[in-house]
Each structure stands twice: as C-alpha cells, then as structure tokens.
Design a protein around this nucleic acid. Structure first.
Ligand SMILES: [Zn+2]
Ligand SMILES: [Zn+2]
Ligand SMILES: [Zn+2]
Ligand SMILES: [Zn+2]
Lengths: 168, 168
DNA sequence: ATTCCTCTTGAGACTGAGTCTCAATTTCAG
DNA sequence: CTGAAATTGAGACTCAGTCTCAAGAGGAAT
C-alpha cells in the first residue's frame, strides 16, 4: 500500500527531526508521539485533529485526545505539519515534511483545492515584512472563487455543481 | 468627536446599503440592527463580537448577544464588515464600508494587526488566477510573525510580551 | 537494580466562542 | 386594523480545544 511505503520511505527522517526538536527542549520521543507522527504522515491533504484521533482509534493505535492535540502542536513547532485556521472553529493540519511551500486556490462551488506557488509573490511578501520590520513566521494565502470546471458548468446549467468529494 | 462625525457622514449610505441588503431578502431593518450597525461604524480597527457587545451595553444601547452575532453576519453578507479568523476561536471584525482593500500581518505574540496593500501582489494574484482559469471572488492573505515591538522586547527580556491591549 | 527527578499520559472536568430554541414581541403588507 | 412572517432575548446548548492531576514512564546516577 502506498501509504505504508511512504511511511517507510520518509519516517526515518521525520522521526529524526521530531526527536531533535524534542530533545533540544528536554522532551521525550514517546511511543504515543510516534503513533501520532505515523498517523499524520499517512494522512493525505488537509485533516483535522478529530479525524486523526478517530483514525488512530480505528487502527488500534489509540492515543488520548489531549495527547493528539499536544503532539500536533509539537509537530507544528518542529515544522513537520502546518496548522491552518481556514474556517472558524476548525483547525486543519497538513503534513509538510519534504514538501515545498505552496498556497491555495479554493473553489467555492465544488471545494476543489488548487495549489500554487509564485516566487514573485513570495519575494514581495518578504519585502512587505522588511518594510514593517516584521519577522514573518508563516503566511496564509488563499484565493477563493470559481474553478475552471465549475465555470464551464455554470455557463451551460446555471444551477448544478460538480460536487468535488472530500477536502483535498 | 470624530467618531460621531464619521457616523453622521457615512451612516446614511451604510444604512441604505444594509436596508437594501435586508429588504432584498424580506428581512427587516430593526432598531436593534441599527444599534449594532452604529456600534460597528464607531469601532476603530479590528474588534471582536464580545467587545462590541460590551460597548453597546456600556452606551445603554444594549442588544442581546444573539442579535449581535446575527447582525454581524448580516453586515458581513452586505459587504459592510469583514470577518477574519486570524487566530482560532476568536473572530475579528472590521468595518470596510468605504475603505479600500487591504491584507494583514498579525503578531503571534501580542495580536497586533498591521494592514498592508501591495499592488504588485494583487496583480500577480490576478495573473495566477488567469493561468489556472480560476475566477477569483475574494482572497485571504495573512502574514503571521513577530511585530517590531515584540522583537525588541524579546531581545531585551526573552520572556515577557508587551501585551498589546485591544487589537489594532 | 534502586533512587529520584522530571516528563508524559489519559480521563474527564472545564472554558469560551458561537449557535439554537422558543415564547413573547414587533413589523409591515394588505 | 389584522395576521402572517420576521425578530428578539434569555439562557440552554454545542463543540473544539485546554487544563488538571494522579498515576505511569524515562533515564541518569549511583
Ligand atoms: Zn506562499
Ligand atoms: Zn470547482
Ligand atoms: Zn489583497
Ligand atoms: Zn506584537
């Protein structure tokens, strides 16, 4: 299974990174934290904490809710996952270990997520921060609108929408 | 007082816009909704719902919590305010009637909000959308990090934070 | 192995923003 | 006026996330 392979392929260095992050703070790499890391690495796209918790329970790798939340924060600090507050009352995570930075376009109709990177925008952002003596730690850049497919559908049937399943 | 003047100066058209928005949906422009609108227009910068509620109570223009939240959503739909989810569990509003578009930098330490506009970034965004045949309706561009003041504090006392009262 | 100190865990209580319910009230078109 | 439909407020409720704290590791030093 590809998730398993991915885990094997990358787990070594992700674990290493987590271990380094923790030990630098006199924290310990516990079995529970490893279970959460493993769970995170096998999730695709954007997921929330409860979803991860449920996934761990189903796979008989149960970890308490408190530990999941606590560990996700550690992983975020270690730069292994990103935590987004896209909508209210619902933080979403994505694992970013070994992935390049990217931003998102989100279709209001079907929910499709398109990733994009634009080096010029990234550079201009840095410039803006410099101008304000602001030390950037991260950014959220999302463009909402209607994707190509939904525009086509609208043109032909001004009502229906090609319901794109699950968040990407 | 400038807040009063501002209110008089703009209230007419803001009310008008709200009335139009509501009547188009068979909703009513009630005294309560007007109180909330008035409160919103006199707030500076970014504020949260509880702050507004408290403000209304202090000015003897009390409106229930439910109505404040409900009305803020109407105002957002009418394009009179913007609702931001900078941090989790804490929506911030700003009134945008008659204001130009801008994006935000948010300090992780003290919560200060700095507004910025960069025409080049805006243009590049349009370009990215064109490339993907994506029709933009709106965007969220937030840069998180450490503001100038908090950087200074950190340098001198690596712990404390200049708890910035009331978000800017 | 034993000690000792610190970190970690999990169950569940708790918090706080925001929503919902519903009876009483207001609005407004007819 | 009158009545249907919208609105309100008090407070119960939800839900994500945090906190508490007693019990359970980890691990360094002896
Ligand atoms: Zn970016
Ligand atoms: Zn779409
Ligand atoms: Zn912008
Ligand atoms: Zn600051």
């Amino acid at each position: 299974m590809s998730a398993e392979r991915r885990l094997e392929g990358e787990a070594g260095s992700a674990q290493e990174r987590l271990r380094d992050h923790l030990s630098a703070r006199n924290l310990r790499l516990t079995p529970e934290r490893l279970l959460v890391l493993e769970g995170v690495l096998t999730r695709e796209g954007h997921f929330d904490a409860e979803e991860l918790l449920e996934h761990l329970r189903r796979s008989n790798k149960s970890v308490s809710r408190a530990t999941v939340y606590r560990t996700l924060d550690h992983l975020a600090e270690a730069g292994l996952v990103k935590k987004h507050h896209f909508q209210e009352g619902h933080a979403l995570f994505e694992h970013v270990h070994g992935r390049d930075h990217h931003d998102h376009m989100v279709c209001d109709r079907c929910g499709r997520v398109i990733e994009f990177v634009n080096d010029k925008i990234e550079a201009l952002q840095e410039e803006v921060c410099r101008e304000h003596d602001f030390r950037e730690l991260r950014h959220v850049h999302q463009i909402f609108g209607i994707c190509s497919a939904c525009q086509a559908v609208e043109k032909r049937a001004p009502n229906a929408s090609p319901h794109h399943s699950g968040h990407a």
